[in-house]
Amino acid sequence: MPSRDRIFSRIRHNLGRGPLEGEAAQALKARIEGHAPNIVPKRTNIPHKEQVNLFQAKAEALAATVARISSFDDVPEALRDYLTAHNLATRIKMSPDKSLDSLPFDKTPMLEIKRGAAAPEDEVSLTPAFAGIAETGTLCMASSPETPSTLNFLPENHVVVIKASQITGTLEDSWERLRKTYGAGNLPRTVNFISGPSRTADIEQTLIMGAHGPRRLHILIVDDGPQD
């Protein structure tokens, strides 16, 4: 008997039944398609403005740094200031994403911008985010040809631009947004939830930052008014 059959027959035998059919199967299908939320913490039942503040506070508690800017036009200078403050390289690998097309890098001629997926030599990446989750200060990143996921991991410094309106309350909110964008039952190839920069405690339980992923995570929140 092929292993697949053997496994299923053992499962069913030990559960004392045959394959689920008819109503029983329908109920499970409906459960998946209904994807009802389980208990969701009430922590984020607050006005959107406070959710954004909570997102920032939570992200900072995770050792990310956050700067608030008032428009996309301010991104290049905010980026430059951040790189200067940390004495970082000025060559940037940026997501080839439409949302970043209009960034006025002519204001910051010292920044050298390349677009594409991450290469091992890239030291700084600049990416958009799909959503922010206030509950835990987590970024939700969706992969696409315009937003390659390697940019989230390979460079040592990851700078993320997110609009305040993209910040939501909970994980469940991000699922709803993903379903709206990609259709029910579909996810982009990679969905990364990022909560602070990379770390490890594998040597004598001492916390060390920058294990394999970025050592630094910097989040630029663009205050674009109310939620989408």
Partner: peptide, 24 residues
Amino acid sequence: ATGQEMSVYTTFSTGPKRMEDIDG
């Protein structure tokens, strides 16, 4: 596990790279 609210990276992988993807 560690007392974190979320681990740093939680990643959902769905299938191989898509047609136009430049990584994965």
